[in-house]
């Protein structure tokens, strides 16, 4: 099966939505920690240089400047790479952004394995787990460039703390400009299947769609749910899947602890149709340097592995 890649990175796809939001909101500021050239700020920097700040290599300062701008009445967008955007600034985010419910958007690049050749220091393997445990936080994980621009628009319109998890380079294309994104709502890519439900987001969506042919060869018809919003999660879609299919497989570019799979389990086990859930992702370990696609294959996200898990779940 031939694989088609986006022509732009998810970082540039976010940048398109950022400059639009800067036009709409004259009080929107974008702050980078020596990341103003690497996190999609370029179009905004060109049009609104006065509202783009590079505060140096100082992520905690960036987070608190964002909190301060929001507390003073502005809208703030802060951006860096996933480990820094989630863990380096986690207490600032929790106590000074989420607790006072301030309008700060955290843009997290190189997330999942897309920190690729840089290695573990630059990959975001636990970021969703960290962010998901903070009340008031909204978490969005787009699958590709087209859906990233569309989802970013909604995230930037939303008022309050949000974590937008994006990648590094161009990824496998899944959607086009007709993509519909509603904050907090699942996107059913195959609604009719009832043998098993596969719930996925981010880069994993493309790989699930490639795995689909493999499990269909085995006569399995799965429901496929893209879950771009991890928080607040679409409990209704999950409970319906549990009820209709009786078996769920989650697939994500994250540690199997704390991310989408955990969020799905939390919903399923408190619903009225509890069912078994198998979580596919990085098995609670540290990965390594390498090309993004090779890492995805090695760390459980090859279409073959996904299909094998789906088959064994039915």
């Amino acid at each position: 099966m031939s694989v088609k890649y986006d022509t732009i990175s998810t970082r540039d796809a976010f940048g398109i939505a950022l400059v639009e939001a800067a036009r709409e909101y004259p009080n929107l500021f974008a702050i980078g920690a020596d990341t103003t050239k690497s996190m999609g700020f370029k179009p905004m920097m060109k049009e609104f240089p006065d509202r783009v700040i590079n505060n140096g290599i100082a992520e905690q300062n960036m987070a608190m400047i964002g909190a301060g701008i929001a507390a003073a009445g502005g809208r703030a967008v802060i951006a860096t790479y996933a480990p820094f955007a989630s863990m380096r600034i986690s207490e600032q985010v929790r106590t000074f952004i989420c607790y006072p419910d301030l309008d700060v958007k955290i843009i997290s690049g190189l997330s999942g394995l897309s920190g690729n050749i840089e290695g573990v220091t630059h990959q975001g393997l636990e970021d969703i787990g960290v962010m998901r445990s903070m009340a008031n936080m909204v978490i969005v994980v787009p699958a590709d460039a087209a859906s990233c621009t569309i989802a970013s628009r909604e995230v930037l319109k939303y008022t309050g703390p949000a974590y937008l998890r994006i990648g590094r380079g161009a990824v496998e294309q899944v959607f086009d400009s007709s993509y519909k994104f509603v904050l907090g709502k699942a996107n059913l890519l195959d609604a009719a299947g009832t043998d098993v439900a596969v719930i996925c987001n981010g880069c994993a969506v493309a790989r699930v769609l490639r795995a689909k042919a493999l499990w269909e060869n085995a006569g399995i018809h799965a429901r496929i749910i893209e879950m771009p919003t991890v928080k607040p999660i679409d409990a209704e879609a999950i409970l319906a899947a549990a009820h209709d299919c009786g078996r769920i497989v989650t697939v994500e570019e994250h540690n199997v602890i704390g991310g989408l799979g955990s969020a799905v389990c939390e919903v399923v086990c408190s619903g009225d149709a509890p069912c078994l859930v198998t979580r596919v992702g990085i098995d609670d370990m540290y990965t390594e340097s390498g090309p993004h696609d090779q890492l995805l294959d090695k760390y459980n996200l090859s279409p073959e592995h996904i299909a094998a898990v789906v088959k064994s779940a039915v």
């Binding site: 480990p83 820094f84 380096r88 050749i117 840089e118 290695g119 573990v120 220091t121 630059h122 390594e288 340097s289 390498g290 090309p291 090779q294 890492l295 090695k298």
Partner: peptide, 25 residues
């Protein structure tokens, strides 16, 4: 920077002999 290498994109004290501390952040 290759898959399976002892030499990671950033220093890794467990994988590379002679590296005294992991760094890169």
């Amino acid at each position: 920077r290759r898959v399976g290498s002892h030499l990671q994109g950033h220093p890794d004290m467990k994988k590379t002999p002679g590296v005294d501390m992991t760094s890169g952040s």
